[in-house]
Design a protein around this nucleic acid. Structure first.
Lengths: 337, 337
DNA sequence: TTGTAGGCGTTATCAA
DNA sequence: TTGATAACGCCTACAA
């Protein structure tokens, strides 16, 4: 009165179970699933039927262990809830999905120590590739990652000496382009509303040095904590206006610019006549605010798409052209400055 | 003249390598790393030294295969670049990190078919738990997921019959609360600016039915595609104003509300005197726009935090209280309505 | 085109 | 407290 029929297997069906059901060897089933072109069509059919019958779901842990390819890409970003990065993350995810990879997403915060530790634990998943945000990493992280000899793409920055591959643009040049615009438009008294992160700092120094070369000395600025928010833009402008008088406010992101514009208007200043405002990023609202925001456009989706493509190509041994990609940027003149 | 010294092992060091370096068995090394309290302190020291010396990084694929616990949580969301979800994702990620799990993030789009397929491939990673957005899933998805008998948390919605666990709130009630507010404030001619997703639809029907019970018939509305954007708010209001005249515009998100407010102001309407606007979500800018946005506040971070906690507790066999969590919401009266 | 043998790196289990 | 052995489920390599 005990084990009469099936003892109800509590464990998930394996390749072996499918093979048994199909009257084949497990190896043939594996081939039918992964490289069907190497298997007789009729056999493939049998296998697929058996898969459906058994409810088989492959075990990628076992597969990855055996094949040494996990089909996993680890992505490390400082923050998710940051308008700058979400679009990039989404496009990485989309492109990876097309290529058959899954995305392991890790939020590192802006502390280097944390990033090094995170990457170490991520490597235990044996990802086929890693995406890192930025190019400033602790030596510990570099050591670990180079030692693992896993393909890496750094994004959102530019350097002639990346760890491996890179997709980004020059933040210094963004700063310079902004300075050029200010000079061309005849602005003389700029004020800065600036978030405190590495990339923003580069844009700031590019801007300030270009201004200095034209005899405009270090502008007054207000630091803003991350992520950039509308409210910080409003508050930041209030703080800035206490420090002096300005004809233009340059913001390290459109979100701050949007806040600054509203704050200016709320305090009776006309934008751009009384106070001009410049943003960065060309976020989706920038063209539609009132006035629309003069800003620097960066294709955040392309960054993700190219990064994912670089990794997948490298992993799959496909020929690669450039592995250092400057996606550039362009200045967008609108109504706010 | 060949293999004199180390033949440079191209493969990553394994437990075996560490064991050799420490003069122990691999099993002891494994214990020292995972359950140090079961190993003599001095032995643990030796192991840690050997780990550092060899540069050992555990292989979670092998570990997961052997232990049947992957320490991986799969998270499925419709979109990342959607202000509503990012905060939840970030808090899931944060909480999971604390608990020692990694997050596999998948973007499903809003098509059910896609979600079912995605989850099937996700299950091949043998995640210890899954987070699904919403409660509307294809029967295929339900079958697959129940069959896998993996802990599941559905988020951002409420139902007495979840697949497993659930953290959310009632969208119908949000709609009703909004209707109550409209009635209390004496608004008679509402117009709707509404995104086309399941949850928004629930809020809409909750709103419309409550209005109907008070003899206000189905309001005019304009559909907006996802993700909700500032520009859609502006354009949407233009479209809506062609359909009739209104004393209040109810938006399915604060982002739309922000756009609608700017559009109203740009066309000479005072908010709220000429036209009131109500949003949803209490996004970070809602309190600081001009006028500030009357909206419904939802703690998006708590959703993520609770979801992660529920999963981790369940996985680790910890006692659980409620597995259906209504985090509620509250109406926030500000200046726009 | 299909099958066999062996190993991927870890942990569960039992023994010492 | 430590070690030996046998899975875990799949894929590489080779053989038929």
């Amino acid at each position: 009165m005990s084990k009469t029929s099936r003892p109800v297997p509590p464990r998930a069906p394996t390749l072996e179970d499918v093979a048994r059901a199909a009257g084949l060897s497990s190896m043939t089933v594996s081939r039918a699933l992964n490289t069907p072109q190497l298997v007789r069509p009729k056999t493939v059919e049998k296998v697929l039927a058996a898969v459906k019958a058994t409810g088989y779901i492959p075990n990628a842990l076992a597969g990855g262990l055996a094949s040494r390819r996990s089909k996993l890409i680890a992505v490390v970003v400082p923050q998710i809830n940051n308008s700058m990065f979400v679009d990039t993350i989404q496009s990485i995810s989309d492109e990876l999905a097309v290529r058959g990879y899954h995305m392991l997403l890790c939020v590192a915060g802006y502390a280097q120590q944390t990033e090094a530790e995170l990457v170490a634990t991520l490597l235990s998943r044996r990802p086929d590739g890693i995406v890192l945000t930025g190019i400033h990493h602790s030596t510990e992280l570099k050591r670990v990652i180079l030692n693992a000899s896993v393909p890496v793409v750094e994004i959102w920055d530019l350097t002639p000496t990346p760890l491996d591959m890179l997709v980004g643009f020059s933040h210094e040049k963004v700063g310079e382009a902004t300075a050029d615009y200010l000079l061309r438009k005849g602005y003389k008294r700029p004020g800065l509303l600036w978030t405190v992160d590495n990339r923003a700092a580069l844009r700031k120094s590019g801007l300030c040095e270009a201004l200095a070369r034209n005899d405009i000395r270090e502008p007054a600025f207000v630091d803003v904590s991350l992520p950039a928010r509308f409210a910080s833009g409003r508050q930041g402008l209030r703080d800035l206006l206490k420090k002096g008088s300005f004809d233009v406010i340059v913001c390290s992101s459109d979100t701050l610019a949007q806040g600054a514009i509203v704050e200016a208007q709320a305090s009776g200043l006309r934008v751009p006549q009384d106070l001009a405002v410049i943003g960065f990023g060309d976020l989706d609202f920038a063209a539609d605010t009132h006035p629309s925001i003069t800003t620097v456009s960066v294709d955040r989706q392309v960054i993700g798409q190219r990064a994912a493509t670089l990794l997948a190509d490298r992993i799959e041994g496909l020929p690669q052209q450039e592995t250092i990609v400057d996606i550039g940027f362009h200045f967008v003149e609108r109504d706010s400055a």
